[in-house]
């Protein structure tokens, strides 16, 4: 187990170094001159040259890369041009919303996807299975921003059950803020529930064909017990994997959903950063989101051993 964890951490470090290098390439090499962008159209050539020196942009690219690696290793992600505060601070002050939204959306996706997948597998080949599989395909094909706008139209504007947009007034109680996140979480979670449903169904079908399921049925155990305890538990590993993947998809989706619902989270900050060419923020967002993704994958790998005691690394 320990050697596995160490080896896994090693390959994770390699991937993170590559991620950081890719981010460096995207942010520093492709675009024109960040100094000119930062200063805007009115800047003189002398101003730009001065800022280039201050930012270290006049130095060789290899040196710039080394400085960049040192900075991110020490947690220094630079300063946002548009928000005029350190990138880490800007992200942390918006993290609560995005975290809650992602958690709620994962819950929505699991709450819809897993039970429907189980039912579809048990009903394999029957009408209910076909209907659910078709519904899942449709759900996966709808743009999440479209789902969001439709939910706003019916549940906020026409029925008035939920706020149209925003995150409540500053300092409002948690339940009030959560109420603002219900529709966004649905818009974000529904497309992903389709993926979870498909994986649950496939994984359950594999397990339901096993001998021990027949044995359990033959000895007269209630059908619900066989399906939920004997089958679902053993089908859990692929489902866990896809839920881990889903979190990454949702972090990306949050960018769109937060824009639809005008939520002041990290996702919306990223869109604003792109529109204002705020490179430090884009760079920080890329690094943080990919690090979270890599960590989730690690966590999922380690969870396998918990879910399935037969797995010993």
């Amino acid at each position: 187990m320990l050697t596995f964890v160490i080896r896994r951490l090693g390959s994770m470090a390699v991937v993170m170094l590559l991620v950081a290098s890719l981010v460096f390439v995207i942010v520093r090499v492709i675009p024109g001159d960040p100094a000119a962008v930062m200063l805007g159209d009115l800047a003189t050539a002398a101003d730009i040259a001065k800022l280039r020196v201050a930012l270290g942009l006049d130095r060789p690219i290899a040196i710039q890369y080394a400085i960049y690696l040192k900075q991110i290793l020490t947690g220094d992600f630079g300063r946002s041009i548009f928000f005029n505060q350190p990138v880490v601070e800007a992200m942390l002050s918006r993290a609560e919303l995005t975290l809650l939204l992602t958690l709620m959306a994962v819950t929505v996706a699991m709450a819809i996807g897993v039970p429907i997948g189980v039912v579809a597998a048990v009903q394999r080949g029957r009408r209910l299975d076909h209907a659910m599989t078709a519904a899942a395909m449709l759900a996966a094909s709808l743009p999440s921003f479209w789902i969001g706008l439709t939910l706003i139209h019916y549940f906020s504007v026409q029925l008035g059950w939920f706020p149209v947009a925003g995150y409540g007034s500053p300092g409002s109680v948690l339940s009030e803020r959560l109420r603002h996140l219900v529709l966004p979480a649905l818009a974000l979670g529904i497309p992903s529930s389709a993926l979870i449903m498909r994986f649950t169904r496939t994984s359950m079908l594999d397990v339901l064909g096993e001998d021990y399921i027949r044995t359990a049925r033959a000895k007269g155990l209630p059908a619900a017990l066989v399906v939920l305890k004997h089958a679902l538990r053993n089908a859990a590993i692929p489902i866990l994997t896809v839920i881990g993947l889903t979190v990454a998809v949702l972090m990306g989706g949050a960018i769109v959903t937060e824009t639809v619902f005008a939520l002041p989270g990290v996702g919306r900050m990223i869109v604003q950063a792109v529109l204002y060419r705020d490179y430090p923020v884009i760079q920080g967002a890329l690094l943080v989101v990919s690090a979270i993704y890599v960590l989730i994958n690690l966590a999922v790998d380690l969870l396998y051993a918990v879910v399935d005691p037969r797995i010993r690394y």
Binding site: S21, V27, A248, V249, G252, I255, A285, V289, Y293
Partner: peptide
């Protein structure tokens, strides 16, 4: 393969947005 791992560590839309910010 590590390179593709790294590229797939970004959500699709985030990587696309970042590239478009540059391009």
């Amino acid at each position: 393969m590590r390179l593709t791992d790294a590229m797939m560590a970004f959500p699709d839309i985030l990587l696309a947005i970042a590239l478009l910010a540059a391009l």
